[in-house]
Protein backbone atom coordinates (compact mmCIF):
# COMPACT_ATOMS: atom_id res chain seq x y z
CA UNK A 1 0.00 0.00 0.00
CA UNK A 2 1.24 3.48 -0.91
CA UNK A 3 1.01 6.63 1.19
CA UNK A 4 -1.48 8.09 -1.33
CA UNK A 5 -3.90 5.31 -0.31
CA UNK A 6 -4.07 6.30 3.35
CA UNK A 7 -2.77 9.88 3.61
CA UNK A 8 -4.92 12.13 5.77
CA UNK A 9 -5.48 15.04 3.38
CA UNK A 10 -5.60 17.55 6.18
CA UNK A 11 -3.71 20.67 5.15
CA UNK A 12 -3.89 22.22 8.62
CA UNK A 13 -0.65 24.18 8.81
CA UNK A 14 0.82 27.38 10.13
CA UNK A 15 3.14 29.97 8.67
CA UNK A 16 6.49 31.03 10.10
CA UNK A 17 5.01 34.12 11.72
CA UNK A 18 2.01 32.36 13.30
CA UNK A 19 2.00 33.05 17.07
CA UNK A 20 2.62 30.10 19.37
CA UNK A 21 -0.80 30.57 21.03
CA UNK A 22 -2.53 30.15 17.66
CA UNK A 23 -0.53 27.01 16.93
CA UNK A 24 -1.61 25.52 20.27
CA UNK A 25 -5.25 26.22 19.42
CA UNK A 26 -4.91 24.54 16.02
CA UNK A 27 -3.17 21.53 17.58
CA UNK A 28 -6.03 21.23 20.06
CA UNK A 29 -8.75 21.47 17.42
CA UNK A 30 -7.22 19.46 14.61
CA UNK A 31 -6.28 16.44 16.69
CA UNK A 32 -2.77 16.53 15.23
CA UNK A 33 0.33 16.20 17.42
CA UNK A 34 2.41 18.51 15.26
CA UNK A 35 1.73 21.13 12.62
CA UNK A 36 3.56 21.59 9.35
CA UNK A 37 4.94 25.08 8.80
CA UNK A 38 4.61 26.28 5.21
CA UNK A 39 5.83 29.23 3.15
CA UNK A 40 3.78 31.54 0.91
CA UNK A 41 3.61 28.87 -1.79
CA UNK A 42 2.49 26.10 0.56
CA UNK A 43 5.91 24.44 0.60
CA UNK A 44 7.01 22.75 3.79
CA UNK A 45 9.67 24.70 5.69
CA UNK A 46 9.43 23.19 9.17
CA UNK A 47 7.32 21.49 11.77
CA UNK A 48 6.14 22.58 15.20
CA UNK A 49 5.03 19.92 17.68
CA UNK A 50 3.55 19.82 21.16
CA UNK A 51 6.97 18.68 22.29
CA UNK A 52 8.74 21.63 20.63
CA UNK A 53 6.46 24.02 22.51
CA UNK A 54 7.00 22.20 25.81
CA UNK A 55 10.73 22.26 25.15
CA UNK A 56 10.48 26.03 24.70
CA UNK A 57 8.74 26.31 28.07
CA UNK A 58 11.02 24.17 30.23
CA UNK A 59 14.12 23.11 28.35
CA UNK A 60 15.73 21.56 31.41
CA UNK A 61 12.79 19.22 31.96
CA UNK A 62 12.15 18.11 28.44
CA UNK A 63 13.87 14.79 28.79
CA UNK A 64 12.11 14.00 32.03
CA UNK A 65 8.57 14.41 30.81
CA UNK A 66 7.77 10.77 31.39
CA UNK A 67 7.22 11.79 35.00
CA UNK A 68 5.37 14.89 36.11
CA UNK A 69 6.93 14.57 39.54
CA UNK A 70 9.95 16.43 38.20
CA UNK A 71 7.85 19.57 37.78
CA UNK A 72 7.57 21.77 40.90
CA UNK A 73 4.26 23.21 39.61
CA UNK A 74 2.50 24.07 36.37
CA UNK A 75 2.47 27.76 37.29
CA UNK A 76 5.97 28.17 35.98
CA UNK A 77 4.97 26.70 32.63
CA UNK A 78 1.91 28.92 32.48
CA UNK A 79 4.02 32.04 33.17
CA UNK A 80 6.55 31.05 30.54
CA UNK A 81 3.79 30.31 28.07
CA UNK A 82 2.36 33.83 28.55
CA UNK A 83 5.85 35.12 27.70
CA UNK A 84 6.19 33.22 24.44
CA UNK A 85 2.58 32.97 23.25
CA UNK A 86 3.00 35.84 20.78
CA UNK A 87 6.37 34.65 19.51
CA UNK A 88 6.37 33.33 15.93
CA UNK A 89 6.51 29.54 15.66
CA UNK A 90 9.60 29.97 13.49
CA UNK A 91 11.61 30.44 16.71
CA UNK A 92 10.74 26.99 18.02
CA UNK A 93 10.01 24.87 14.94
CA UNK A 94 12.26 22.11 13.65
CA UNK A 95 13.68 23.00 10.26
CA UNK A 96 14.96 19.58 9.34
CA UNK A 97 11.82 17.59 8.75
CA UNK A 98 11.39 13.91 7.98
CA UNK A 99 8.76 13.70 5.24
CA UNK A 100 6.80 11.04 3.41
CA UNK A 101 5.94 11.14 -0.28
CA UNK A 102 2.75 9.94 -1.93
CA UNK A 103 4.46 6.99 -3.63
CA UNK A 104 6.31 5.81 -0.50
CA UNK A 105 5.25 2.39 0.75
CA UNK A 106 3.49 1.82 4.05
CA UNK A 107 6.45 -0.25 5.19
CA UNK A 108 8.89 2.58 4.50
CA UNK A 109 6.74 5.04 6.46
CA UNK A 110 6.30 2.60 9.36
CA UNK A 111 10.06 2.11 9.46
CA UNK A 112 10.68 5.88 9.50
CA UNK A 113 8.20 6.42 12.32
CA UNK A 114 9.59 3.57 14.42
CA UNK A 115 13.23 4.44 13.98
CA UNK A 116 12.70 8.19 14.56
CA UNK A 117 10.05 7.84 17.26
CA UNK A 118 7.61 10.02 15.29
CA UNK A 119 3.84 10.12 15.79
CA UNK A 120 3.16 11.79 12.50
CA UNK A 121 4.83 12.65 9.20
CA UNK A 122 4.00 15.45 6.78
CA UNK A 123 3.46 14.29 3.20
CA UNK A 124 4.76 16.43 0.33
CA UNK A 125 4.49 16.31 -3.45
CA UNK A 126 7.37 16.48 -5.94
CA UNK A 127 7.72 20.26 -5.51
CA UNK A 128 7.68 20.10 -1.73
CA UNK A 129 4.08 21.31 -1.31
CA UNK A 130 2.29 19.97 1.74
CA UNK A 131 -0.42 17.53 0.61
CA UNK A 132 -1.36 15.91 3.92
CA UNK A 133 -0.08 13.99 6.93
CA UNK A 134 0.28 10.37 7.95
CA UNK A 135 -0.31 9.53 11.61
CA UNK A 136 0.70 6.33 13.36
CA UNK A 137 -2.98 5.60 13.86
CA UNK A 138 -3.57 5.85 10.09
CA UNK A 139 -1.10 3.00 9.65
CA UNK A 140 -2.30 0.97 12.63
CA UNK A 141 -5.93 1.16 11.62
CA UNK A 142 -5.08 -0.39 8.25
CA UNK A 143 -3.09 -3.35 9.54
Amino acid sequence: MKVRDFVRRDLSAVERDTPVARAIKILENSGLSSLPVVDEEGKLVGIISERDIIRALVPEYVDMLHSASFLPSLDRLARKLREIENHPVERYMKKEVVVARLDDSDLHVADLMLRRGLKQLPVVDEEGHLVGVVRRIDLLSRL
Binding site: R9, L11, S12, K25, I26, S30, V131
Partner: peptide, 9 residues
Protein backbone atom coordinates in the same frame (compact mmCIF):
# COMPACT_ATOMS: atom_id res chain seq x y z
CA UNK B 1 -14.77 11.15 1.84
CA UNK B 2 -11.42 11.78 0.18
CA UNK B 3 -11.65 15.56 0.21
CA UNK B 4 -8.59 17.62 1.11
CA UNK B 5 -9.25 19.98 4.02
CA UNK B 6 -7.73 23.39 4.67
CA UNK B 7 -9.95 25.08 7.23
CA UNK B 8 -9.41 27.93 9.66
CA UNK B 9 -10.26 27.01 13.25
Amino acid sequence: RGVGANFVW
